[in-house]
């Protein structure tokens, strides 16, 4: 390898990257199933829309946790910020068209992510945990205190969402909501795929592997972390905006610690670092939550906690080895 001229090396690299980025049959099957669910499960569209939103949110956490190794206990900060932005845009008729409002909320969340990303660059895991958690709690306090604007603890009332693209109005059955959320998820997943399979994505993985060595081979570590944190914040903001738009409501709950903690569980169930973990985790988590909530309406959190403890005690490495074995059978990777 070392003897080959740079051009040949670059071509070989490009080919490797291209191979990694190729669509696998199982991925295509996943999306065929998703599209089929639109037609085959018309009665389930409300929960399916929730799943799609949660999946997008988990995808966003995967970008920073799975690809950059940043542990966040406050990812709901961006989710909530996007949710309130979308709610306020619609309520005050600033941006009526949902898709445009979605983009604007995403940009706003990205700006917040960019600013706060400098806070997570420094310090140990503990400092990062505290700072991310602190940012989420701070935003929650702000939303709580400025109740003339946000409705405080009552939530943002009277949010009327205009029809998507001017022609598809949200309905009570959740058909439009689901198709809309699924389409947004698909588009953003394709973008995320391009991102992580690009040289930029590879450099992120090297930063996660060993930040010191990555900087030694010339990767600007901090700039990479700021960039991915900003992108992840935008994704989370869009997920939050989707929630507001599909439910026409937004409450302080979007910033809650439980939301950030549940999100970690979603991603851990699905597995980190291959983009589909968040999607698979969201499906499993929501179905499980639905099932547990019908069995024990008040205490389902107990079982979520038990699952977290069990996952850690069994060991994530061992679980991902089982998953790898399963994936080896279906060749997702």
């Amino acid at each position: 390898m070392s003897a080959s001229p740079p051009g040949v090396l670059a071509a070989a690299l490009a080919e490797r990257l291209g191979q990694r980025a190729r669509w696998r049959p199982i991925e295509i099957a996943f999306w065929v199933a998703a599209v089929a669910s639109v037609f085959l499960l018309p009665g389930k569209h409300i929960i399916l829309a929730e799943i799609a939103i949660l999946a997008l949110f988990a995808l966003s956490l995967d970008l920073i946790l799975g690809y950059a190794g940043i542990i966040s206990l406050g990812h709901a900060a961006f989710f909530g910020f996007g949710a309130y932005c979308a709610g306020l845009f619609a309520k005050h008729h600033l941006i009526n068209e949902p898709v445009l409002a979605l983009g604007a909320a995403g940009l706003a969340a990205a700006a917040l992510g960019f600013v706060t990303s400098f806070l997570v660059l420094r310090g140990s895991d503990l400092t990062r945990l505290m700072v991310t958690l602190g940012v989420a709690l701070m935003l929650r306090e702000i939303a709580n205190r400025f109740d003339e604007l946000t409705g405080g603890a009552d939530g943002l009332q009277g949010v009327g969402i205009a029809p998507v693209l001017g022609s598809f109005a949200f309905d009570i059955t959740g058909h439009v909501a689901y198709v809309y959320a699924l389409a947004v998820l698909a588009i953003l997943l394709v973008l995320a795929r391009r991102l992580v399979h690009s040289p930029f994505g590879l450099s992120l993985r090297s930063v996660k592997g060993n930040a010191l060595r990555a900087s030694a081979i010339g990767i600007p570590v901090n700039a990479r972390l700021v960039a991915i944190y900003t992108v992840a914040a935008a994704y989370a903001g869009i997920a939050g905006a989707l929630l507001t738009q599909t439910t026409a409501f937004c409450s302080l709950d979007v910033f809650s610690f439980e939301r950030s903690a549940d999100l970690l569980l979603v991603l851990i169930i699905g597995g980190t670092g291959y983009l589909y973990g968040g999607l698979i985790g969201a499906v499993i988590f929501k179905l499980m939550q639905d099932w547990l909530a019908t069995m024990t309406p008040q205490y389902w959190q107990f079982w979520i906690g038990l699952l977290l403890v069990a996952i850690v005690l069994v060991g994530r490495e061992r679980m991902s080895r089982w998953l790898d074995a399963a994936r080896g059978l279906v060749r997702l990777r």
Partner: peptide, 22 residues
């Protein structure tokens, strides 16, 4: 790793909250 410790102890918190509630 710290991520495991976080997940593990959050799990314990959720369990204790629900159990106490019950």
């Amino acid at each position: 790793p710290h991520l495991d410790q976080v997940l593990f102890t959050i799990g314990l918190v959720f369990m204790s909250v629900a159990a106490t509630d019950w």
